Amino acid sequence: MTAPAWGHKPPPVDDVTAYWTTVPPAMSPRCGYWITRHHYGTWRSNRWIRRQGYHAAAEWLGVWIWEYLHVIRPLFEEEEESLPTCANTAE
């Protein structure tokens, strides 16, 4: 089986709370995977993940909480800002 352009999904981090308030020494492979997928346009946040708290979202994504709060969630916020707004044009 050939790998997609963004590679195969690496294993999740062992403990999402290991880097909660401090910057990890290096980005986890799983965080890099999600960033690459987002860059290629093959992954966007869904409503479920956006409604979750940061701990549940980090566990689901397999990244450290710090990475979710400072790397992944800002990607979601950029997506929301770039979505076209629906203006009511009825008079």
Rank of each mutant, 00 (worst) to 15 (best):
S28Y: 06
C86N: 08
E81L: 09
S28H: 08
R30D: 02
E67Y: 07
A87C: 07
T36N: 10
P29N: 15
V16N: 03
G41Q: 04
E81D: 07
G32Q: 12
G7C: 00
T85L: 05
D14S: 10
I49V: 07
A18G: 05
F76K: 01
E81W: 00
A56Q: 15
A58F: 09
T17W: 07
T17P: 01
A87I: 15
V13I: 08
A18Q: 13
E78W: 06
T42G: 00
A5C: 02
W60F: 15
E81Y: 01
A18V: 04
V71N: 00
P25E: 08
V63S: 09
I65E: 14
C31R: 09
V13A: 12
Y54R: 09
E59M: 15
D15L: 10
A58R: 12
R30K: 08
H55C: 11
A87S: 06
P24W: 08
A5Y: 01
P10M: 02
G53C: 14
H70K: 10
E59S: 13
H38S: 12
N88F: 08
R44I: 06
S45I: 02
V71R: 02
A57H: 15
T17K: 10
W20S: 06
V13S: 12
A57T: 07
A26C: 04
C86E: 13
E78K: 02
L83I: 08
W34V: 12
S28I: 09
W43G: 01
M27L: 15
G7W: 00
A26H: 04
E79Y: 08
H38A: 11
Y54D: 11
C31N: 11
A5Q: 08
A26G: 02
T89S: 09
H70F: 11
L75N: 00
R50W: 01
V23S: 11
I72F: 00
R30V: 14
A90C: 12
E77V: 05
T42R: 04
L69A: 05
M1V: 01
I49G: 02
N88A: 10
T89R: 08
Q52S: 13
C86D: 13
R73H: 08
C86I: 09
W66T: 05
H55V: 14
Y54N: 12
I65P: 05
Y54G: 03
